[in-house]
Every structure is written in C-alpha cells, then in structure tokens.
Design a protein around this nucleic acid. Structure first.
Lengths: 224, 224
DNA sequence: CGGTGACTTGACAGGATTCAACAGAAGTGG
DNA sequence: CCACTTCTGTTGAATCCTGTCAAGTCACCG
C-alpha cells in the first residue's frame, strides 16, 4: 500500500515512530478525484482533511462575479483542508483537482485524538500552519504592495529556485491558473511575458521559459 | 500582578489549570512600548513572542517604496509574533505600537517546553493559528477580488458587529492605518466615505460614522 | 505661536481589467 | 481517423479604478 509511503514522506509526519505511522495510516481512507473535480467548497462543514498522494490541487476563493484567486497549489505529500480541523466548523475556501489525483482522507475526530496523544505530531502541525501563515503574509504583500510584473517575476524566480537553479524553467501550471495565483487575468500575464521577452529578459516557447537576464528579472521582482 | 489576569483572559490559555497558568506567568517578562515604537522588524531573529496587556499593535509589511500593508490589528489579550516560534527563524513581518502599550514577553524555548508538556495549550495554539489563516484568506480575497469601496463597506459592517450591532460606530484606528489595512491610501478612503455619505448610506462626523442604510452598505460589501 | 500630523479635495496619469475576436491545441465521439 | 467542440492562450482597443502629486484646512502639542 502506497499510503504509508506517502505518509512517511510528508513533513507533517516526520519524526514519528513506525507504530504511530501505522496507526495514522489506519485511520485514513483513499479517495480519487478527476481533473477539474471540486473536492470541497467554501462554507461546507468539514469532517476531514486531505493529503495529496499524487496529482495537484488548487485551493482558491471565488468572487460573486466568478473571478478566482488561488491561495495554494498543493503538491504531493502535502496536506490541505486542515484549517477547519482546529478552527472548528467549515472550509474557509474551495479546493479542486488540477489533475487527476489520489488523496488520503483523515477524519477529523480520529486525527484530533492522535494529535492529543502525540506531541510531535502537534508540533509538526504547528510548524505547517506557521509556514502557511508566512506564505500568506507574502501573498498579501505581493498583492497589495507590488504590481503584476513584479509578482510574475517573483514567480519565475520561485520556479527557477524550485528547479534547482536552472535558467530553463517550465510553467508547472496552465496560464489561467497562474494568473489566478498572481491575482490577475490571463491577458495580463500574456502581455507581461511578452514585454519581458522583447526586453530580452526571457525567451518563451510555449510553457518553457528561459531566463536570459537574471538580474533584470530580480529588478522586476522588487519593482524596478 | 495583572499579567496573570490577562493570561487568564486570553483564549490562548483557556482551559488550563491554575498551576499551568502560574507556570506560564512565571516565564514571562513585562515590556512596554510607546506609541509608534517599533516592536520588531521583518527578518529579525525571533527569540520570543508577545501578548498584549493593554494598548494595540499593528503587524504590517512595507514595500521598498515605503507603502504599508497592515496584516493584523492586535487587541489586548491577543498574542502576536508567534509564527516564528514554530516555523523557526525570523519574523515574517513588522510590528509597531499603535498606542502606548504594555506586553508580556514569552521566551521561545521556555514556551516550547510548556507546549510540549501541555496538550491543551498546543490545541489552543493550533486553533489560534487556524483562525489567523482564515482571516488571512479573507484578507487575500478582499484585496484580490473586491474593490476598495467593498472592502471599506466590509470594515464598516465589521465595526458594527463588533460594537454589538449599533448603527453608530467609531473608527477605532486613524484613517491612515485604516487605509493601510484596506490596502489603499488615505485619499481613497476619504473619497469613498464621502461618496457613501452623499448617497445617503452613512453620515460621517469626524471619527464617528452612522450607518443609515444597512442594506446599501451590504450591497457595497459584496460588490454592488 | 510655530509646527507637526491627520484629513480632505482637486487634477492628472497610468496600470490593469474588460470586451471582443481569433488562433492553436487538446480532447471527444462517430 | 477526421470533424467538432472545448479549452487555452494571444492580441487590440477602450474604459476605469486607484494611486500620485500638490495644495490646503483643521486640530493638537510642545
């Protein structure tokens, strides 16, 4: 069973004994979602949270007019939907599968029990939530204090870092999701990518982007 | 000593035994800040977090150009600066005193020890961080998906709710702080307040605002 | 009483969204 | 295997919200 393997890989469960890991695995159930499928919606009562086994998930908000703002892209081995486990009540945002994916479902009450018994698990969870807060603070900062080109440049640098420093990076998400993550619309992303290309900072071939002028991109990222 | 009184009132320490509360109080030290004084800055190594005894504190980000975005207004009995206790390292934002205030300082290591010993305290902290995440998600939503008038209307409704439902509310913070909280500038806040007044939705006398048309404000809050 | 900070108002510029049309790419089904 | 639909991405033009700049009022404090 691969569920225990993915649990073992997740930072959330780092440092726990084999017995604990087995006990954790025992309270989970598997659940698959098809690409585009909604996993949960804002306001719904939450009776469980999820861990991604494979595939990716977006967590997002929607305006009355239908515009989206992506809050997180969840990669394999990362949990999502864990907030209402502790703040009570209901999901504060929506989640949908970006690709076909497999998840592990952790029922709220069983997990809380485990948590109470195992201080390390609680500490891991505190670390997880704190890192999320740090990321949120950065997101707020970017949305409020920077313009779209700077956000896009930041994202390119993030991709570069993620790919181990290579100047050739692949957009890991479709551009409409990217724009929703940057708090803008696809048209704007398209235009800015274009501008950066004509300025000689990058070259774009479909979803593959090559950073030609690292310094130039960094200047963009801080706002010229 | 009022420190134990404020600890007792804080949700973070709810449900703990008197001994625990005494032990918690014993690891804290007092620290006062003058109005406007910086408490900590982004990037600084964090060796402690704070609990407000009286006065209020703003937690905020600053752009290279000096523009501010307020993330939280911290009221008495609320903690702040607790994130780096768990995510390691350094403060992800800045904090400054909005008024003369008194705080309790919790050293990181002693607090972590307490936390490990007392599961309820860990659960309380998980609840606290989760609520912060919910608030952040809402902030991101407002900044990205709503225009300034809608954000301002939301804030007015928040004030009304906070004051127990009275239609007469007092702005609890100066307008330049309010604008930084709404992700805009004082001029814009001024103009929108004016527009709402001429539309008969509110009346403004200095810092006191009377909501004349609740439905109208609610319509504003969701975007017309 | 000079001075600083809070707040307001007007004029202006500009970044970004909206609307619309279109080109490829991808996925579906007969 | 090809036509058809759908989704993704691009480009252009017009609009508008919001920030910036500048000036000026009012209140409070040393």
């Amino acid at each position: 069973m691969q569920s225990e393997a993915i649990i073992r890989r997740s930072p959330l469960f780092a440092g726990l004994s084999d017995e604990d890991l087995a006990r954790i695995a025992s309270i989970t159930t598997d659940r698959a979602f098809k690409r585009g499928q909604i996993i949960f919606s804002e306001g719904e009562t939450a009776s469980a949270f999820y861990l991604v086994v494979y595939g990716r998930v977006k967590v997002y908000k929607v305006s009355p007019e239908g515009k989206e703002q992506v809050l997180h892209i969840i990669d394999p081995a990362e949990p999502f939907g864990e907030v209402p486990v502790f703040s009570g009540h209901s999901f504060p945002a929506n989640a949908a599968a970006l690709e076909d994916c497999q998840t592990l479902v952790f029922p709220r009450s069983s997990f809380l029990e485990l948590l109470r018994r195992e201080p390390s698990l609680a500490m891991n969870m505190l670390g997880l939530l704190s890192r999320r807060l740090v990321r949120f603070a950065r997101l707020v900062e970017e949305l409020s204090l920077k313009e779209v080109p700077a956000r896009l440049a930041s994202y390119l640098l993030y991709l570069k870092d993620k790919s181990g420093g290579s100047s050739e990076v692949d957009l890991d998400i479709p551009k409409n999701v990217l724009s929703a993550l940057l708090g803008t619309v696809p048209e704007t992303v398209s235009r800015i990518l274009n501008r950066m290309a004509t300025e000689g900072l990058i070259s774009v071939e479909g979803r593959r982007i090559t950073i030609l002028d690292n310094q130039g991109i960094q200047d963009y990222a801080v706002g010229l």
